[in-house]
Each structure stands twice: as structure tokens, then as C-alpha cells.
């Protein structure tokens, strides 16, 4: 799989896709909590001021209002930063959205440490864990803007459950093309391999693809799986790949507790015990800094994936 030279912004894509959908989906409404210019929902607000509601700095109210709109049949996207869209209103999401199974699309941006300079107060690295734990909730993290667009389009017509859509602040290399098709519970084999399985989610796909190249140059065949749907996770694909390689690495811009790594381990431990190395934030807070510098310091790099793979394989 090729990585494009020019990274693009999935936030911009998110805003533009909402604008596009607004024309065809008259019941589409978008809410934000005073971060519309950052999440890019302001683009929708400009195009459809009657269907855009800035709730102010009030995330609990944001989620409650979204629940009420969804209960009355609207297609609702509620946006803010991942930190404030998962942590602050967690209980509202659990009790007023997930328990009554109201199809609110919680689309958050600025997830993970790639938020960068704003520092740990704004770096949501626990959100997948706490969202994944709530019944009815589905959790998705796209890798690039093409995938983000397809997912947002898919969600506009999705009413079966609440969804947590995790987007990044940083510009990301484009790996998918317009043939991409999203499906809940389906992973994507980005590269086939036989020695080690590398499973990534969100923007970490391009790091996994870097590792694929590095490992290949050392004669190691890595199977690269992208898992946009963290819940439900693609257990079948995980088991098939691990059955072949017996060695699995997970990489996510999130704590190794409760995120993709945990989801993969849960599948393997109950069905096909295999050696697993989880790469992510290791039960600690990060710090301010440029995204790439943070990735490097906290081990979210192609090099680190490759070196952990070699350790697993005793090479």
C-alpha cells in the first residue's frame, strides 16, 4: 500500500463531508461545544446555520441535547475535542445516549498525543477504553481523510446505535483511495505477510506501513492490518492472521490499557493465545511537543514497531 507524499487533514474532510451531506440529508444536524473552528464543523454551520448548534462550553449539555434530537429522529453529529467529548460527558453518554441506544454520532477530533503542543490536558489517550466499555457504543478511528470521508458518509444514514468517531488533529498521509468501503467489524489487510502481524488503528497506519518497509528490508514479512472498527473488532481477521504468524504487534495513539491492544488481546486470549506486544502510551501521561517528536519519544514510530517485531521473532 502506497503512502502519499502530501498529508491531508481529516478534520477539514470531516467538515466538508458534513457540508456535502447537509444538502442531501435534510434531517442532519451538527452540534459543537465552542470548538467549531477547530473541529471544522463551522463549515457546516456556515452552510446550514439553521441546523448547526453551538452549545457553548458545555459538553454535558451538548450530549444531552444530541440525545434529545436523536430521540426525535434527527441524524446527529456532536463534535468537540476527544478529551472533552469522552471524559467530561461520559456519564451523559452512557445514560442518556448508550442506554436508550440513541444513534448520536460523537465525532471528536484532536485525539491522542498528536494534539502536540497543547500538552496532556488535551491529549485524550483513554477515550477508546472508556467508550469501548459502554454497551451499545461503537468505536471507529480512521487512518486518513479518504477513509474519514467514507465513514462520515456511512454514518449519516446510520441509526442503529451510538458511534464514537475518533479523528486526529494532525495532517495525515493518504493511504486509501476512493474504492474504500467502510463496514463495522471489518479490518483491512494493508499488506499481506507471514512472519508477524502488525495491527494499527487511526493515524498509526502509516507508521505500521513504515515498519513494513523496514522489516521487509531485513527479510521479515509483516502482515499489516488496519482496524478502523475497534468496536466491534474484526475477530475473524485477527485470528486468521495470528494463526498464521503467531506473533502480533498492536500500535495505537492511545493507552495500551483498554484500547486496540486490549481488544486484540481479548480476542486472542480467549481463542488463540499468541505472543502480543502492545505499543502505545504505557500507563503514563505525555507532554507538550511537536507530534512527530512525541511519537518518537513515546515509541509510536515505524522503527520501534520494527524493533519490537524483531524482539518477538528473536531476531
Amino acid at each position: 500500500m502506497q503512502i502519499s507524499a502530501k498529508p491531508t487533514s481529516m478534520r477539514n474532510t470531516y467538515g466538508d463531508t458534513l457540508v456535502k451531506l447537509g444538502a442531501t440529508h435534510k434531517n442532519l444536524v451538527v452540534l459543537d461545544a465552542d470548538l467549531a473552528k477547530s473541529t471544522q464543523t463551522a463549515r457546516f454551520g456556515k452552510a446550514y446555520p439553521d441546523r448547526f448548534f453551538d452549545m457553548g462550553i458545555a459538553e454535558q449539555d451538548l450530549m444531552g441535547t444530541a440525545a434529545g434530537l436523536a430521540a426525535s429522529g434527527m441524524s446527529v453529529f456532536a463534535s468537540t475535542f476527544a478529551m472533552f467529548g469522552s471524559g467530561r460527558p461520559w456519564e451523559q453518554i452512557r445514560n442518556s445516549i448508550c442506554y436508550p441506544n440513541l444513534p448520536v454520532k460523537i465525532a471528536v477530533t484532536h485525539a491522542g498525543i498528536s494534539v502536540g503542543e497543547d500538552g496532556p490536558t488535551h491529549q485524550a489517550c483513554e477515550d477508546i477504553a472508556i467508550m469501548r466499555a459502554i454497551p451499545n457504543m461503537k468505536v471507529i478511528a480512521p487512518a486518513d481523510s479518504v477513509e474519514a470521508e467514507k465513514i462520515v458518509e456511512y454514518l449519516a444514514d446510520y441509526y442503529d446505535s451510538p458511534v464514537y468517531l475518533r479523528l486526529a488533529r494532525m495532517n495525515t498521509p493518504v493511504v486509501f483511495d476512493s474504492n474504500y468501503k467502510f463496514e463495522f467489524g471489518k479490518g483491512i489487510i494493508a499488506e499481506q505477510g507471514r512472519d508477524v502481524t502488525v495491527i494499527s488503528t487511526g493515524v498509526m497506519l502509516f507508521k505500521a506501513l513504515e515498519a513494513h518497509k523496514l522489516l521487509a528490508s531485513d527479510g521479515i514479512s509483516a502482515e499489516i492490518i488496519h482496524m478502523p472498527s475497534i468496536k466491534p473488532v474484526d475477530a475473524k481477521m485477527i485470528l486468521e492472521s495470528a494463526g498464521k504468524t503467531r506473533n502480533v504487534i498492536t500500535i495505537e495513539e492511545h493507552s495500551i490499557i483498554g484500547g486496540l491492544g486490549s481488544a486484540v488481546c481479548e480476542v486472542l486470549a480467549e481463542n488463540l493465545p499468541a505472543r502480543v506486544k502492545r505499543i502505545g502510551m504505557t500507563d503514563r501521561f505525555a507532554e507538550s511537543g511537536e507530534p512527530e517528536a512525541l511519537f518518537k519519544k513515546y515509541g509510536l514510530t515505524g522503527n520501534n514497531i520494527a524493533s519490537e517485531a524483531k524482539k518477538l521473532l528473536n531476531r
Binding site: N27, G64, G68, L69, S72, G73, N95, S96
Partner: peptide, 25 residues
């Protein structure tokens, strides 16, 4: 029952959402 409730403090936001939907519709 129009809305699931029990955890205090959340109903007014939900009512607002329903009322907004009614106006939009």
C-alpha cells in the same frame, strides 16, 4: 415513556434537543 432518565441533571438538555427537533421538523 419518551426518555430514559434516572441520572439526575440530564433531562433539560434532552428536552431542549427534542424541542429543537420539533422546531426543525
Amino acid at each position: 415513556v419518551d426518555m430514559t432518565t434516572g441520572s439526575l441533571g440530564q433531562g433539560l438538555s434532552i428536552a431542549n434537543g427534542m424541542a429543537l427537533a420539533a422546531k426543525l421538523q
